[in-house]
């Protein structure tokens, strides 16, 4: 023990510190976040803690949010684009209980948005922070399972294998067969995994006014894309990057050019396509937009 002052934190619930983590852990995560911002796309190792929710449920994102969060923040949590999925509800409650901060489902009202698998349809603005939950932060992991090897590849900026893999898809299927977690190059240097968002969302990362932070708890990595930073999806001149297209608008709000969930309505093949971003859909409907309500 050193002769350091023992910090007596303010406690919001049942003996836990504000936003659950102790101050020493927050400091360690905060230092990692600053390095991540300074070296966009580089995965900073951090001493991820064991959290009261399982690995795979967003422990990395939760730790990043806990380290960034302050009393004045307004927090939004989404999973699959929706605020009402069980894991989003669970994480939002965790922070409401341990920090007492205000929460919202409105993208425009939030200062911090923690997400799993989607980027909101409503364009983000300056001053907002988007925190991604990341399962496998290493974009090269499925080409090379060894950390010692992939670290060298990043150090040498040796990303040839990734291009070969994508090109093999093209020769086999006629298309790049990666539909989510589609690799991107950040600020012209590091190749980065955008987390398992559909590639539909990749263009939203480019030159985004909000700060994007990525937390991988089990794999113990934090990385970042600062605002107004180039994020380019890897592609080829003869096979440029393209996002998914849906043939019909949202059945509830009529939105086009948004990502849709496919709902199975019966066992006769009737299905309906509706917005994956529940806040966006509700906002449009409140503004009077109406879909056909039709199944297809």
């Amino acid at each position: 023990m050193s002769a350091t002052a023992m910090i007596e934190p303010s406690r919001s619930e049942a003996g836990y510190n504000f936003a659950y983590l102790d101050e020493g852990t927050k400091r360690m995560i905060r230092r990692a976040i600053l390095k991540a911002i300074a070296v966009p796309g580089y995965q900073v190792p951090f001493a991820s803690r064991e959290m009261p929710m399982p690995y795979g449920w967003g422990t990395g994102g939760v730790q990043v949010t806990a380290a960034v969060l302050g009393r004045a923040d307004v927090l939004k949590v989404i999973d699959q684009g929706a605020d009402d999925t069980t894991n989003a509800v669970s994480i939002r409650r965790f922070f409401a209980r341990t920090s007492g901060v205000a929460t919202t489902t409105r993208t425009t009202e939030a200062t911090i948005i923690q997400t799993r698998h989607r980027i909101p349809e409503t364009p983000l603005r300056e001053g907002q922070v988007l925190v991604y939950q990341v399962p496998i932060p290493e974009p090269l992991r499925f080409l090379e399972p060894r950390e010692t090897e992939t670290r060298q590849l990043h150090a040498l900026r040796e990303y040839g294998a990734m291009h070969v893999k994508l090109y093999e898809d093209i020769s086999r299927h006629g298309h790049i067969a990666t539909t989510y977690a589609y690799p991107v190059e950040v600020a012209g240097r590091y190749v980065m995994d955008p987390s398992p968002t559909p590639k539909f969302d990749n263009p939203k990362m480019d030159d985004c006014p909000a700060l994007q932070l990525f937390g991988a708890g089990r794999e113990r990595r934090i990385y970042a894309v600062p605002p107004y930073t180039s994020v380019r999806s890897l592609d080829f001149e003869d096979h440029p990057f393209r996002v998914q297209q849906f043939d019909q608008p949202c059945a509830l709000c009529g939105a086009e050019g948004v990502y849709l969930d496919e709902m199975l309505l019966d066992d006769a093949g009737r299905r309906m396509f509706v917005c994956s971003d529940t806040d966006h859909c509700e906002g449009r409907r409140a503004d009077g937009h109406v879909g056909t309500g039709d199944a297809v």
């Binding site: 699959q80 698998h117 989510y180 990502y259 496919e262």
Partner: peptide
Amino acid sequence: TGFVEHLKLPHYVDFQAELEL
């Protein structure tokens, strides 16, 4: 166990992307 069991969490949007392809 976390990473194996997290597969039961929703993956609607990723699966939708694969379906489309």
